[in-house]
Design a protein around this nucleic acid. Structure first.
Lengths: 229, 229
DNA sequence: CGGTCCCTTGATAAACATCAAATGCAGTGG
DNA sequence: CCACTGCATTTGATGTTTATCAAGGGACCG
């Protein structure tokens, strides 16, 4: 396929830097395998994790689509990762030629925007344990793991930063979730009753009805229940 | 121009509903004049304002680009407003035909995504007075008003909700800003030293270097200073 | 004049960050 | 194997921030 032939394939080991905030934005990336943390630092040294990208995600999309000359954030591999890198020119040429391709980009960018909007809502509507609960559900959904026994894919520090809370609050929030049937040992998580956790975490979320994760969760329950008979 | 001929022109008075959350998403809108508040409600009755759209903004973009059948939020006019409404089909046909048009959409959607990301960062990095300060700067920038004497375009309740804080906190935050030279009387605001406010509010913001508002602010200072000589 | 609505102010409580200290755990070198 | 080091995590104590509850002020309007 032309799309993979034009790519410059890059590998990054866990901990390596993909690009740095304020460096010249030369490439647009598709993450093929692994995970990359997108993060920024303030002048006071505080850091915020904007996104944890997984396979299929775009990196440095804003720089390409908004014609920015410099990267808007740092990107660090948090697993051994494989990326496809493309020059801005190549992507733009391709968008000129293939409307279908551009439309797919549009869908992907719009999804990012929706996700960021939901994140913001969560910041003001959900307390720490609820946000952590929502995160656990999302992890189960994304990696198709068994909620009854899975492990956190990255460090708790990383997740705390992703949720915009201190590591201490993250730890305490996990502890609080015991009351809704979540048991934690190291980074091993067991969710006894996914539905109860969903009720607890996503109950106060204004978009739960449309939340793709929540919808898939309900599908899953539907099929589980039916397969039990 | 074809773009305005194809539009179904609609007017809404202040307070009227443009569309409702969960209603069938039939149209995509461009706001021509006025202002529209995009907001959602949780099952517990709490409400969050996602965005206050101004002239030139898109409405119901996510529904179009992500192929959603229902509106994802409520939209209420907070000023007498004029909108252009388009059917999804018309826009999609046009995107097929004109790559340039699609690219512009992409830029707009990407900007929305960036804005939402910055909002989220503000929620975790800035305290209430800083967020309010940032808002004041943005208002000055957007409406090209004189920072030394302007009035808030909408109710403080609206702005508080937009910033994800209670009206009480908004009020107190405005009062706190007196210490950096902001005086408030009713909805009349006077910013004595815009640069000082920027330093106070945007100092701890990780993206201030790239923030378009902050950059324009610096331009303005540059020209002001030069014109004083 | 009495109403409503928006806003402000004060008192209190909850949530969360911060600081400090202890624990656990993996890797390292003896 | 064991001490040792560094790092991630947990836990406790404390302080700050913000929401919440309650009451009052002021503008506008009949």
């Amino acid at each position: 396929m032309e799309f993979s032939r034009a790519a410059h394939r890059c590998r990054f080991r866990k901990g390596e830097t993909v690009f740095l905030h304020a460096d010249p934005a030369l490439s647009f990336f598709i993450l093929v395998r692994g995970a990359v943390r997108i993060h920024r630092q303030t002048s006071q040294g505080a850091e915020i994790t904007l996104h944890i990208a997984g396979p299929g995600d775009m990196l440095a999309g804003a720089e390409l689509f908004e014609d920015r000359k410099h990267y808007q954030a740092n990107a660090t591999a948090i697993e051994d990762s494989v990326l496809f890198a493309y020059s801005h020119r190549w992507i733009k040429d391709r968008m000129q030629k293939y409307p279908r391709f551009t439309m797919n980009m549009l869908t992907a960018v719009s999804r990012n925007a929706s996700r960021a909007t939901i994140d913001r809502e969560h910041m003001s509507m959900l307390n720490a344990p609820q946000r952590v609960g929502c995160l656990l559900i999302q992890i189960c959904d994304r990696y198709r793991t068994d909620p009854r026994n899975f492990s956190l894919p990255y460090s708790k520090l990383t997740f705390a930063s992703r949720l915009g809370m201190s590591p201490e609050s993250f730890s305490r929030a996990l502890a609080d979730l015991r009351e809704v049937g979540v048991s934690v040992k190291g980074n091993r998580i067991r969710i006894a009753d996914l539905e109860a956790l969903d009720e607890y975490a996503c109950g106060p979320c204004s978009i739960a009805w449309d939340c793709e994760t929540c919808l898939r969760l309900q599908h899953r329950h539907f099929y589980q229940r039916n397969s039990e008979h």
